[in-house]
Computed example of a mutant assay.
Amino acid sequence: AEPRTDPDRIAAVGYGTGGAIGLELGRDGVNLRAIGTVNALTTGRPGEAARIRCPVWAGVGSEDPIMPPAQRDAFAAEMQAAGVDWRLVVYGGALHAFHHPPVDHTVRPGVGYHPRHAQRAWRDVVDLLAECLPVTEPASASELPSS
């Protein structure tokens, strides 16, 4: 309803809970152009993912105890069964919340910052948005119709 928003150019990107919410929006059939999620490979009820009508990109650390291999496999199986255009990137050696600098594994085991993978994940998100929400250049003055 926001007048400055183009309803045909909306994506959902989030880290942790925000990414899970993005996936739920897709499962609810919200008209999105892309969903990007880091550290949130939630799965839905059977059949819900079939309502996702946009590409889904997900990133997770290989050493993330909160999103272990079984969770990754369940997420992949759900997306595949629903025919979603999906990608899952597993960042080798990264823990949960690898994108968040203040997080330290001494605070909570299995959580820790990985600067290289944090940058890579952000680039992957930007690439997803560039693919799904391409920027169109305004017409140059020479291309505008004369009055």
Rank of each mutant, 00 (worst) to 15 (best):
V111Q: 09
A130V: 04
E137D: 10
S140I: 08
G112Q: 01
G92M: 01
T106D: 11
L129S: 10
G92Y: 00
R123Q: 14
T136N: 00
L95W: 03
R116S: 04
H105M: 05
T106Q: 06
G92Q: 13
V135M: 08
A97E: 02
A118G: 04
H105A: 11
V89K: 15
V103D: 01
G92H: 03
E131Q: 15
L88K: 11
S140H: 09
V111W: 10
G93F: 08
R108Q: 11
V103C: 07
H100Q: 04
A118K: 05
V89W: 01
V125H: 04
A118L: 03
P102I: 12
F98T: 00
A121S: 15
R108C: 03
Y91P: 04
H96L: 05
C132N: 07
L88V: 09
A139C: 03
R120D: 01
R120K: 05
V107G: 11
H99K: 05
A121H: 08
L129K: 02
H105Q: 07
T136I: 12
V111F: 02
H105W: 06
V90G: 13
P115K: 05
P115M: 07
E137G: 06
H114A: 05
A139T: 02
V126Y: 03
L88Q: 05
E131W: 07
P115S: 04
G112A: 13
E131Y: 02
Q119V: 14
R120Q: 12
F98Y: 15
A97H: 01
H105L: 02
A139R: 14
G110A: 04
L133W: 05
P138G: 14
A130T: 07
D127E: 12
P101T: 15
A139Q: 12
V107N: 05
P102D: 07
L133M: 13
L133Q: 08
P102S: 00
D124C: 12
L95G: 14
L88F: 00
C132S: 15
P134V: 09
V111R: 00
P138E: 13
